[in-house]
Computed example of a mutant assay.
Amino acid sequence: MISFVEHIDRQPASRVVLGMSGGVDSSVAARLLMDAGFDVVGVTCIFVDDENARQAAEDARVVAEKLGISHVLKDCTHRFACNVVDSFVEEYASGRTPSPCVVCNRSCKIPSLIEAADELGCGFVATGHYARIVRQDGRLAVARSAFAPKDQSYMLSMLSQEQLARLVLPLGTLTEGKARVRELAAQWGLPVASKSDSQDICFIHGSHLDFLADRGLAEHPGDIVTSDGRVVGRHKGLHRYTIGQRKGLDIGGAPEPYYVIDKRADANELVVAFASGASIVGARVRDVAWQAGTAKRISDACAEHGSYPCSVKLRYRQAAVACCIVSSVALDGSPSTVDVLLDEPQATTAPGQYAVFYDGDTVLAAGVIEEVRR
């Protein structure tokens, strides 16, 4: 099995802070770290103060006690509210579709764990994500999990070099994925071995529409229009719809189904098209974070050859597809925006989602989709 510590330079008795969510993944990660010789301190970050969070913290405490490791609670509610929840609501209000887990990992979860590690005298932090960290061309990067169906490299694609240098991912080298994790948990007598997986958005219990309404996102009905401006129906509020959505549009009399392809927040218009007009051929990606790739290397390749071939994931649950980065645009002196062309047209994606670029299994870079090209 590939070692999950190959990318770090550690002392034999290195101390590590492990983010313990109370689930089976982080619980097994704790034991794997112990078996690798780490002195583990379990830290449960409290992002939302509710019953579910309190139960998760108690589950983590019980697992830590079973393993004989220290367990600490860290209040991260303010940081989470400011960096994740507020951003989530603002993005929907602006007509975009956010990816809160990517935002959380870069601006809340990993920074909180590093902060805890510094306070507790630990050199490293760890999580239960299914991904690996590798060195490539002198840089650190997230790479796909050895168990492809559970890969979570997308979720860690915006991490900086400084964050990656502190991070250890024990589950990324397991070739049998979640089945093996549950098997190990049962074998080690961990009380969460059969605990169900958590939901995708941890701070929403129930409808995200109710959540947004509770935070002041009011209903503003408006026109549903085609890309050439023809009105074909009425929407109930832009935040109720997702790019690519086909059902629930209540548009009658059309020869074939319409798909949502855009939200024009300024005009309060929902834009739709038939399937033939719903695919995309490229995108502009902003706020790019560089991992295995660098802005200079990509820019030089585009200048010399016209493009930089790689692959890209346009949504977490979509497969990576072949593409070429064709330009790197300088904003405020920093090349933080890139244009990408897809080798073949793909189903549309939503501004606000993340585009994650790969060289094989390794993350080159990632950024927020600003706009798509049709």
Results as ranks from 00 to 15, higher is better:
residue 332 D to K: 07
residue 367 G to D: 04
residue 79 R to C: 04
residue 309 P to I: 00
residue 298 I to G: 14
residue 81 A to T: 13
residue 357 F to V: 10
residue 46 I to H: 10
residue 190 L to S: 00
residue 369 I to Q: 01
residue 293 G to I: 07
residue 79 R to F: 00
residue 260 V to P: 08
residue 306 G to F: 00
residue 362 T to R: 08
residue 52 N to R: 15
residue 252 G to V: 11
residue 185 A to F: 07
residue 339 D to R: 12
residue 23 G to D: 00
residue 254 A to E: 05
residue 336 S to K: 11
residue 337 T to Y: 00
residue 225 V to D: 00
residue 302 C to N: 10
residue 290 W to K: 03
residue 277 G to L: 10
residue 340 V to P: 08
residue 102 V to F: 04
residue 163 Q to T: 05
residue 38 F to A: 01
residue 100 P to N: 07
residue 186 A to P: 10
residue 338 V to Q: 05
residue 300 D to W: 01
residue 27 S to M: 13
residue 177 G to C: 02
residue 119 E to M: 12
residue 304 E to T: 14
residue 361 D to G: 08
residue 271 V to M: 12
residue 235 H to I: 09
residue 361 D to F: 03
residue 189 G to P: 13
residue 58 E to C: 05
residue 87 S to D: 09
residue 96 R to K: 14
residue 152 Q to M: 12
residue 322 A to Q: 08
residue 231 V to C: 09
residue 296 K to G: 06
residue 29 A to Q: 04
residue 94 S to D: 05
residue 172 G to F: 04
residue 197 D to F: 01
residue 75 D to C: 15
residue 100 P to Q: 09
residue 254 A to T: 04
residue 299 S to E: 04
residue 27 S to I: 05
residue 317 R to N: 13
residue 333 G to L: 01
residue 147 F to V: 10
residue 127 T to W: 01
residue 285 V to L: 08
residue 257 P to Y: 02
residue 215 R to G: 13
residue 136 Q to Y: 01
residue 336 S to D: 07
residue 227 S to N: 09
residue 52 N to I: 12
residue 168 V to Y: 06
residue 156 L to S: 06
residue 85 V to A: 04
residue 71 H to A: 13
residue 50 D to N: 15
residue 223 D to I: 01
residue 255 P to Q: 02
residue 210 D to H: 10
residue 253 G to W: 01
residue 265 A to N: 12
residue 54 R to F: 09
residue 217 L to D: 04
residue 38 F to S: 11
residue 250 D to N: 12
residue 128 G to S: 06
residue 72 V to P: 11
residue 367 G to F: 07
residue 134 V to K: 09
residue 359 D to C: 03
residue 254 A to W: 00
residue 101 C to I: 14
residue 303 A to P: 02
residue 131 A to F: 02
residue 174 L to E: 07
residue 44 T to V: 03
residue 129 H to L: 09
residue 200 D to R: 06
residue 213 A to K: 13
residue 5 V to A: 09
residue 5 V to W: 01
residue 302 C to E: 02
residue 200 D to F: 08
residue 202 C to L: 11
residue 197 D to R: 10
residue 140 L to D: 08
residue 89 V to M: 10
residue 162 E to K: 11
residue 344 E to S: 14
residue 288 V to W: 00
residue 93 A to H: 11
residue 150 K to Q: 12
residue 130 Y to K: 13
residue 209 L to R: 07
residue 331 L to D: 06
residue 89 V to Y: 05
residue 38 F to R: 00
residue 300 D to R: 08
residue 174 L to M: 14
residue 57 A to L: 01
residue 26 S to M: 06
residue 268 N to I: 04
residue 143 A to C: 11
residue 263 K to W: 00
residue 138 G to R: 02
residue 101 C to Y: 05
residue 200 D to V: 04
residue 169 L to I: 07
residue 133 I to H: 10
residue 90 E to T: 13
residue 47 F to Y: 15
residue 158 M to R: 15
residue 78 H to W: 14
residue 20 M to W: 05
residue 41 V to I: 08
residue 141 A to F: 03
residue 198 S to R: 14
residue 15 R to L: 06
residue 137 D to T: 14
residue 277 G to C: 13
residue 209 L to I: 13
residue 138 G to A: 02
residue 168 V to W: 06
residue 22 G to Q: 07
residue 133 I to D: 11
residue 326 V to L: 00
